[in-house]
Design a protein around this nucleic acid. Structure first.
Lengths: 234, 234
DNA sequence: GACATTATTCGCGTTATGTGAATAATTGGC
DNA sequence: GCCAATTATTCACATAACGCGAATAATGTC
C-alpha cells in the first residue's frame, strides 16, 4: 500500500496500459518565496511533480497523503483536491487522467529524501505542459482557500513571528498589507498565541514568536457575515 | 461529438471495460427551492445524475457543456469542475473514476427533454452512494463559489425582482438576510440594472424587474480587501 | 550616545454593516 | 370610496470594521 515515488514505479506505470494518475503540488515557505516539491523523473523527462498511479482499492485522499509523506519526508499539514485534467498533452506516465492535489508542509531544516527537491516558484525548471498546468491549478487553489483554511500558518514552522506570517500572506495575495490592520484582524480572530521566545534577526527589535492555536469560538450563531458582491466580475 | 444522454449510451459504457465518467450536477431555481436535474437510468437503477463516459479527444469542460445542453435543453449559464471521486461504491456505468461538474441553468417555463426531470433538493429520490456524494459535492461547490461567480443571478430567469434574488441568496446561504443591507451592497457593486417592467404578485406593491448587467469596474487597484481571518476554524 | 532598523501599538478619520422604522404602491374587504 | 393588509423601497442612525500615519519600544552599528 506504500505510495513511494521511485523511478521504477513510474516506469512500470508508463509501460502499462493507460490509467489514471494522482499528481501532487506540495508547497512550503522557502525563504522569501513559495517553494514546490519536484522529483527527478526517469530518463530525459527532467523534473516532474510527485505522482503515482491510482489504484481501485485506496481512496484518493489517502493516496495523496501517502505520496506527500514519502516524497517530502513528513506528513503534509494540509491537503486538498484541486482539479482533474485531461485535455493537455500526455502525462509523463501515460495516464489518461490526472487528479491533482495541493498540499502544504511546514518549512523544515532537513531537505526532502532522495529524488525530491524544493524549488522556489520563481525558479522552476521547465515542466511538461500537463504538469505545468497542474502546478498552476494547485497554486491557484492555495490562494483560493487561504482565507477558509489555515494554509498560511501551516506553510511556516511551528513557531513564527507575526512579520513572517504577514510575509506569507503578502506572497499568497500578491500585495502588501498594512501592518497594524493585519495584526488587529489577527488578534480579533484568536488564531495565534504568543510563546515566551523571541527571535533577533541581528538588527532591530527582536520579534516575539507565536504559534498557531485557534481558540474554539462560540458557535458563531447565524454566521453573520455580510454578503459580498464586489468579487463578482461578470 | 454529441454527448447525448440516452439509455443506449449508458448501457454501452456499462458493458465495456472500466473507464472514466463525467457526472453533472445541474441546478436551477424551482419555486422556493433549488432543483437538480436527474435522468431516469436504465433498468432498476432509478434516477441518476446526467453522465457520460470520458473520451480522450475532448476536453472535460467541453464534454460537460455538451451534456448540460443536451440533458436540460439549453446551454448552462455557468459550469465548473467540482471534484473527482473514486472511493465510494461503483458508478452506475462501471466507471473507475467520476469527474464531477456543477452548473446552473436559468429557471425556464419549459421542462427538460425526455429522460430528464428537475427535482427540488428537498424532495430528491434515493440515489446510488457515489451519485449522492457527487451531488453533495456539487451543491457545496455552488455555495462555495456564489460570492466569486454570479451563480445566484444565473439561477434566475433573465429578469427578476430584488426579492427573488435575495431569496436565492438566502437559500444558498441557509440564513435570512436584512433587506436594506442586501440592497445597499448590491447597489454598490453595480451588478444589476433596472428594466422598465414591474411585476405584481397580486397583493402588495409591485416589484421592479432587474437584469444582470455588471458594469466593468475600475481596475480595483490593489484589490484592497481586508484579510479575513474569521473563517479559519482550526 | 546618536542613528538606523525592525517590532508593536495608538489614535483617528472613513467606510461598511446591522437594524428598526418610515414611506410607497398595490389588492381586497367593507 | 375608504381602510386594513401586504409587499416593495428607502432612510436614518448606531456600531463595527478598516486604512493609515505616527508614536513608542528594543535592539545593533558606528
Amino acid at each position: 500500500m506504500s505510495a513511494r515515488v521511485t523511478p521504477s514505479s513510474q516506469a512500470r506505470l508508463a509501460s502499462g496500459p493507460a490509467t489514471n494518475a494522482l499528481d501532487l503540488v506540495l508547497c512550503t515557505a522557502h525563504g522569501r518565496a513559495l517553494a514546490v516539491l519536484l522529483v527527478r523523473g526517469t530518463g530525459r523527462e527532467g523534473w516532474t511533480l510527485p505522482w503515482v498511479g491510482i489504484t481501485a482499492g485506496e481512496s484518493l485522499e489517502s493516496t495523496a497523503a501517502h505520496i506527500a509523506a514519502s516524497a517530502s519526508g513528513a506528513p503534509a499539514a494540509w491537503l486538498v483536491q484541486c482539479g482533474t485534467i485531461t485535455d493537455t498533452r500526455r502525462h509523463p506516465g501515460g495516464a489518461a487522467l490526472s487528479v491533482g492535489f495541493v498540499g502544504v508542509a511546514p518549512s523544515r531544516a532537513v531537505p526532502p529524501p532522495a529524488p525530491g527537491q524544493w524549488f522556489p516558484v520563481t525558479e522552476l525548471p521547465v515542466l511538461a505542459p500537463r504538469q505545468r498546468a497542474m502546478l498552476d491549478l494547485g497554486l491557484a487553489a492555495l490562494r483560493d482557500r487561504m482565507d477558509v483554511a489555515p494554509v498560511a500558518f501551516h506553510l511556516l514552522p511551528r513557531t513564527f513571528t507575526l512579520s513572517d506570517l504577514q510575509e506569507v500572506y503578502e506572497i499568497l495575495l500578491g500585495r502588501r498589507l498594512h501592518k497594524a490592520s493585519f495584526r488587529r484582524a489577527l488578534q480579533a480572530a484568536y488564531l495565534v498565541e504568543p510563546t515566551d521566545e523571541w527571535r533577533s534577526e541581528g538588527r532591530g527589535r527582536p520579534a516575539q514568536l507565536f504559534k498557531f492555536a485557534p481558540r474554539k469560538r462560540r458557535a458563531q450563531q447565524g454566521s453573520r457575515r455580510a454578503v459580498r458582491f464586489d468579487l463578482l466580475g461578470g
